[in-house]
Amino acid sequence: MAKKKTISNTDIITFYMDYVLEHNTQPKTVYAFAKANNFEEQKFYEHFGSFEAIEKYIFYAFFHNTISVLEKSEDYTNFDARNKLLSFYFTFFENLTANRSYVKYALERHKHSLKGLTLLSQLKQAFTNYIAQLEIELIDTKQEQIDKIQRRGLKETAWMQLLITMKFWMDDTSPGFEKTDIFIEKSVNTSFDVLNIAPLKSLIDFGKFIFKEKVQMH
């Protein structure tokens, strides 16, 4: 049988996910993997440098597919930051659920090692950039260093929240993963309620007013 002439990264990802789910392990070599799927080994290296590179990219692809779907929605583009993030979560976890067997295989294989963190490195980069682009309002201290720390802290906290939600989803056995949906709604809304700076701004303004009045009185 003639070798396939055109192989996309999506083809390789599909072949790889099918292989590991059928065999519960990575292919032994790229050569054997390419041969089993009827394409030349060099075609693999045109897209990926290793099987580990595929694994990293797969989690980034879940993110990319999520954003692609959301950006086609006119409603989404008009949402505030809170509802954009909620929409992201629900759509992202629909993507994960559609590939649940693979996600559980990949994450559980590395759950006791640093490789688990490396596996999600591309997802983390993309997700934290997304959080930054949401322009979630923080306290403007007029101090560049403090504002920078705030923004970094927001991105790291958001990333930890995503990881915790992924762990909850992996352990969820409710029909249609309805408990995960509830968890997402409560955790995202709680995060934004904590970040709600309007009352804090009012308090700061009130404090400034009192201070100013006291200074004038003296």
Results as ranks from 00 to 15, higher is better:
Met160Gly: 09
Ser202Met: 00
Phe63Pro: 03
Asn78Thr: 09
Thr25Leu: 05
Val194Glu: 12
Phe51Thr: 09
Thr157Pro: 02
Asp11Phe: 04
Ala34Asn: 09
Ala132Lys: 14
Thr180Lys: 07
Glu40Leu: 07
Val188Phe: 12
Asp193Pro: 04
Phe51Lys: 08
Tyr19Met: 03
Ser68Gln: 15
Ile139Pro: 06
Phe59Trp: 01
Lys155Val: 03
Ala2Cys: 03
Asn129Arg: 14
Phe79Ser: 08
Asn99Ser: 13
Asp18Ala: 08
Tyr102Ala: 02
Gln216Asn: 14
Ser101Leu: 05
Ser187Leu: 08
Ile184Trp: 12
Phe15Gln: 06
Glu55Val: 04
Phe44Val: 04
Gln145Phe: 14
Phe39Met: 07
Phe79Gln: 10
Pro199Ile: 00
Gly176Lys: 04
Glu22Met: 05
Lys84Leu: 09
Tyr16Val: 07
Asp18Pro: 02
His112Leu: 00
Thr190Ser: 15
Val103Tyr: 12
Leu86Cys: 06
Lys43Ser: 15
Leu195Tyr: 11
Leu85Phe: 03
Asn83Ile: 00
Glu22Phe: 03
His112Ser: 00
Trp169Gly: 02
Ile12Arg: 00
Ile164Lys: 13
Ser187Thr: 14
Ala198Gly: 00
Asp11Gly: 05
Phe127His: 13
Asn37Ile: 07
Ile13Trp: 05
Ala53Lys: 11
Thr29Pro: 13
Ser73Lys: 11
Ile67Tyr: 08
Asp18Gln: 10
Thr29Ser: 15
Thr6Lys: 12
Asp80Leu: 05
Trp159Asn: 02
His23Glu: 07
Gln150Val: 04
Gln122Asn: 03
Val103Ile: 11
Pro27Lys: 07
Ile149Met: 13
Arg152Val: 01
Gly207Pro: 02
Met17Ala: 02
Leu117Asp: 11
Tyr89Arg: 02
Tyr105Pro: 01
Phe33Cys: 03
Lys35Cys: 06
Ala81Ile: 02
Leu123Asn: 14
Lys214Tyr: 08
Gly49Ile: 06
Phe93Leu: 07
Asn24Arg: 10
His23Pro: 04
Ala106His: 10
His64Gln: 10
Asn37Ala: 09
Pro175Tyr: 03
Glu137Gln: 08
